[in-house]
Amino acid sequence: MTSLTINGKEYKVDATADIPLLWVIREQCGLTGTKFGCGIAQCGACTVHLDGQPVRSCVTPAISAEGKNITTIEGIATDKNTLHIVQQAWIEEQTPQCGYCQSGQIMSAVTLLNENPSPSDEEIDAAMSGNICRCGMYGRIKSAIKRASATLQSSNPL
């Protein structure tokens, strides 16, 4: 048995040496917000945070995440009844279409804004181009990131 800490909660899982974190999160922990898209770190739908850093969980061995803080889309808000600033911005911009890629998009955006609270267009492109959206909502994703950035600025005046 392997012990994983996901969104602050302990999970005892059955992890072989090679099983990617994605499948453990989805099938053994029942957290299905993290999506399978390509299996080869090309699309970003499976993005989760390991100690705050974004990783593609489809190519990250589950055992390598032992002892680290794993955060999934279900864990970025402080509690069940509130939304993260980025999630709120996503709703306000009416960003998703099919929505399948959006967990990964939001996880990438959260890291971007943590590291760079007011990114330029080019910086947003650089941070987000690993996440594919087949519905093509890139303009809205960018707008939502800028909206979240503006909210961060107004709530944390320098």
Partner: peptide
């Protein structure tokens, strides 16, 4: 008018259930 879409809130929290996310008791893969 552009009313907020019903389907969007669940799509930003990870709660939206796609075919891929279905969990039926006792199921295998």
């Amino acid at each position: 008018t552009s009313q907020p879409r019903f389907d969007i809130p669940a799509k930003v929290t990870g709660e939206a259930q796609f075919g891929m996310d279905v969990q039926v008791p006792g199921m295998k893969y």
